[in-house]
Simulated scan of single mutants.
Amino acid sequence: MRPSDYLDRLRRKYRAHGDVVLDDQEVLELILFRLKPRGDAKQAAQQLMDRFGTIEAVLNAPIYLLEQTRGVGKSVAFDLKMIATTSQRALKDKVRREPVLSSSRAVIDYCRAMMGCERRELFRILFLGKHHALVGDEVHCHGSESFVSVYPREIVRRALELSASAIILVHNHPSGNLKPSSADIMMTQAILMMTRPMGIELHDHLIVSRNGHASMRALGLI
């Protein structure tokens, strides 16, 4: 079967049934054919899937790793990252449109998209204002593969600057292990002790990875 015939078949499947009939590699093949019509989209998609495992991991991979993947190159890697950025912004817009506490699934999806595939720990804070609307979304600090330094006083100071009435803490575990560490629990309690007297609610502390998420509130740790 000629490559063009194969891609036409994938397009017809998608038009008739939507994305449910296509696996991750087939979706990548259709995207890559648009990005590099003279190249071997099937082979490039296979290389990406072999290296990263899922389409989510592909789109969230560092651009230099995408560039190093055989059959991809700088131009296609840049375009893939722009697709990822567009998706992340769409998820963030969804979080902004509704009261955050009534759209927990959207918050989790957004945080996983932004941080779940990171190779080092990041500590993010969602600041909530009146009616629990999102008034700030900031990366507080960057860490290593297994540790990140957090500064509770800076978190409180920033919350007061934004007139936030509540915050959601988020950090990622690159290892994929979603169980809160003893350091995670101690740090959360330290932040809680500082925010509570200031009238700032610590609503939750989420841990995210490429495989899922954990909520410290749901675990009874807040």
Results as ranks from 00 to 15, higher is better:
L128G: 05
S75W: 05
Q47C: 11
E121F: 05
T54F: 00
E98H: 14
T69Q: 11
K130N: 09
A41C: 03
D109G: 11
E121P: 14
R120C: 12
E67C: 10
G129C: 11
V76E: 00
M49E: 04
E145R: 15
H131T: 06
A133P: 00
Y64D: 15
V107R: 02
V139F: 01
L65C: 10
V150L: 02
G53V: 08
G73H: 14
P62S: 11
L126R: 10
L122P: 00
T85V: 06
Q47W: 10
L101Q: 13
A84S: 11
Y151H: 12
Q46Y: 03
L80E: 09
H132R: 10
R120M: 09
F78V: 05
T86A: 06
K92V: 01
A113F: 01
D93A: 06
F52I: 08
R153L: 11
F123I: 00
R96M: 13
A84H: 05
Q47Y: 14
C141E: 04
R89A: 02
F78R: 10
S149H: 04
R97F: 10
L59D: 01
L134P: 01
D109W: 00
L59N: 02
L101D: 14
I63E: 14
P152W: 13
M114F: 02
V107N: 07
T54R: 13
F123S: 01
G53L: 11
H140K: 07
S102H: 14
S87K: 05
T86S: 04
R96E: 08
A44S: 14
S104Q: 15
K74M: 06
Y110R: 03
G71D: 12
R96V: 06
P99Y: 11
E118G: 04
R119G: 14
R96C: 09
G116P: 02
E145D: 13
F78W: 05
I108R: 15
A61R: 03
M115A: 03
I63F: 01
R89H: 06
M114S: 12
R105L: 08
H142Q: 05
K130P: 03
K81C: 07
R70L: 13
L65K: 15
G53C: 12
P62E: 03
I55S: 05
L122Q: 08
P152C: 09
M49C: 12
L59G: 04
C111Y: 01
S75M: 05
E67W: 03
R105K: 15
M114T: 02
T69S: 13
P152A: 09
D50Y: 00
L134C: 04
G143N: 03
F123C: 01
R105M: 04
V95M: 06
A133D: 06
Y64I: 12
V58W: 00
K42N: 05
A90L: 06
T69I: 13
T86R: 11
Q88N: 13
R70Y: 06
C141A: 12
R120D: 11
G71S: 07
Y151P: 08
R112H: 08
R153A: 11
G136R: 07
V58K: 00
A106Q: 15
E98D: 09
G71Q: 10
R112Q: 15
A90H: 07
